[in-house]
Amino acid sequence: MADPALVASDPFVHRFLLRALAMAVLLGVAGGLVGCVLLLRRIVLMADSFSHALLPGIGLAYIWFGPGHAGLFAGAAVAGLGTALMSGLINRLTRLQEDAAFGSLFVLCLAGGVILLSRQAAPVDLLHYLFGNILGVTGADLWLVCATTCSTVIALALFYRPVLMDTFDPAFHRVSGGRSLATHLAVLAAVVLNLIAALQAVGIVLALGLFILPAATAYLWCERFGAMLLLSAIYGGLMSGAGLLLSWHLDLPSGACMVAALGSGFVVSLLASPRHGLLGRLLPTRRHFAHDDGPEDCATP
């Protein structure tokens, strides 16, 4: 447990905490954006597989290059992208579908990663990668996250149209000359990079929370893709930061608090969203009918 005097002090005077706060906000913004694409493309669980598949890459990098962050991130990137490639090949060359290939590979990768890390590192290191430690991040870690977040925002702004078209209707995107496979691979690459960026902060186990919870929350409120992206990014950034500050004041694990803070808004939205929440579905609303212009106006001349 942390020193009670430290916990009670103003968090904004501590440089390491400011660094962690900046990282939480940046991760929340990027996670919120990537999460929207994952949710709408229905590949959330594939992203979960990715996060577990990073572990053997970290293990091998630890063995070969030591505990330096650059090596570990490179190892994670190779493992994540390798898993994506392997799953694609298994899907095309065997009877297995892509989700089954991902599912099979990720448990293998997780087991391999645990074995590798348990042989080489102290148990605390293993827990560090499983659950993260955002308060221990360095300036270099922050720059990595900053670069990843900026890249994600810029890439999504530039490729907004292909992402929208391919996510809404991949067949039409293809007919129109769009590069559906390239778009899919770019999305997977963005997932891997953002997972790696989140590894240090929240760890492999909770990383998906930064992606899916802001996106699911925004999805319950928004009727347009652009609005969903915006709300998800803002909500992700704010609540990740709030969760970190909460963890500081309550002396609780930071990664878990960030995910819990993101989850609190999700639960409220699940109940209270007027159009898509539980209460909205259970209670009769006049708004819906007022908005409707008839069951079918196909007879319009």
């Binding site: 709408l40 078209m165 809404f168 209707d169 067949a171 039409f172 129109s176 769009g178 347009r224 893709f225």
Partner: peptide
């Protein structure tokens, strides 16, 4: 082939024809 739950209005769907 469209995602039925995709948050998009009818005009944006037609707009996407011009994106092509």
């Amino acid at each position: 082939t469209q995602d039925a739950g995709f948050p998009v209005d009818a005009r944006t769907v037609v707009d996407s024809g011009r994106y092509a």
